[in-house]
Amino acid sequence: MPSDVHDSLDHLSRARVAVLGDVMLDRYWFGRVERISPEAPVPVVQVGREEERPGGAANVALNIAALGAHCRLRAPVGRDSAGGSLAALLQKAGVETSFLLLDQLPTTVKLRVIGHQQQLLRLDFEERPDDEAVRDLLQAGEDFFAGTAALLLSDYGKGAVQSPQTWIRLAREHQIPVLIDPKGRDYERYSGATLITPNKSEFQAVVGGWRSEEEFRVLGERWRKTWQLEALLVTRGEEGMTLFLADGIHHHPAQAREVFDVTGAGDTVIATIATAVAAGWPLDRAVELGNRAAGIVVGKLGAATVSREELAAASDGTNG
């Protein structure tokens, strides 16, 4: 790979990204399965190792930090041990946290039971914050944007991104691009954003299906204009990614050699794109880098991150 591309990857460390969204703590119990329970036809997992990782918007922030960039994260969490674990994990990774601590709201926790590298069960512990509590997130104001070159809204539908238009307007006033990982079927609420990144199934749920690649491209461009977006990126799994811009449509084939776990892949994609945009990359090149990152991260277990070194190796043809 040419040295100037390596230099461009090094420039990612200069990026400053602000993230707002729904955070969660991912817990993993790893063990072995050697018998079926006599109480019910279910496997008995002998747990031998436990692990905790930041999830949701927290995983997005972790991915930004893994690229060497500065990340400021704002999110509601419970005043509990899970929230404390999240803060400690993020601070250890170099993420600047600005949590809204809620006494009546438990931090969202997703517990996965893994036996012989196979996920056997997931348990979710979560409650949606009320509107009044989340409105306090908007008090971040101009301080939240200080020194920021991109704003990323990570919407997992848990309540943190209840007023995306407020954030889009604030960011636009500061001439900051807004990138959004959307949720639900009302994409009008993201109108005016720089980029939204639905996956194929999410996009189909909003606009309906298509019978051909040409029909898909017509739908993508139509809805990009309807939602007044600078860009729309549809991530399509093994079919790659398609970016709709005012100056044309850019398709990026999938780069994964082997898919082990797609958990958190969307977080890695939008985190990488936002970091590149904050570093001054044009959107089409930023999406190309995000596609490269996706090809790496799906080969890892659970919500994971990608480093600049891995991206450089992938660009040299030694990975993904």
Rank of each mutant, 00 (worst) to 15 (best):
M1I: 14
M1C: 06
S3T: 15
V5P: 00
H6K: 14
D7Q: 15
L9M: 07
L9D: 04
L20N: 05
L25W: 01
D26G: 03
S37D: 09
E39L: 08
A40H: 13
P41M: 00
V44C: 09
V47C: 09
G48P: 06
R49P: 06
V60I: 01
L62C: 04
L67P: 03
G68I: 08
G68C: 07
A69I: 08
D80Q: 07
A82E: 09
L86V: 01
A87Y: 01
V95R: 01
V95L: 10
V95G: 01
E96Q: 14
T97G: 06
S98A: 14
L102T: 08
G115V: 13
H116K: 15
L120T: 13
R122G: 04
D124T: 11
E126Q: 14
R128G: 12
D136R: 15
A140S: 11
E142Q: 13
A146F: 13
Y156G: 10
G157K: 11
G157P: 04
Q165A: 15
E173M: 13
E173L: 13
H174A: 13
P182D: 03
D186T: 06
Y190K: 11
S191K: 15
T194P: 11
P198E: 00
N199Q: 03
N199H: 04
K200V: 09
Q204Y: 03
Q204G: 07
A205N: 13
R217A: 05
G220K: 07
R222S: 14
Q228V: 12
Q228P: 06
A231F: 10
V234Q: 05
R236E: 05
G237Y: 00
D247C: 08
I249C: 10
P253D: 03
A254P: 10
A254I: 02
Q255C: 01
R257L: 11
R257M: 03
V259Y: 05
V262C: 01
G264I: 02
I270T: 00
G280L: 05
P282E: 10
V287R: 03
L301E: 12
A304P: 04
A304H: 05
L311W: 02
A313W: 06
A314Q: 07
D316A: 14
G317W: 07
N319F: 12
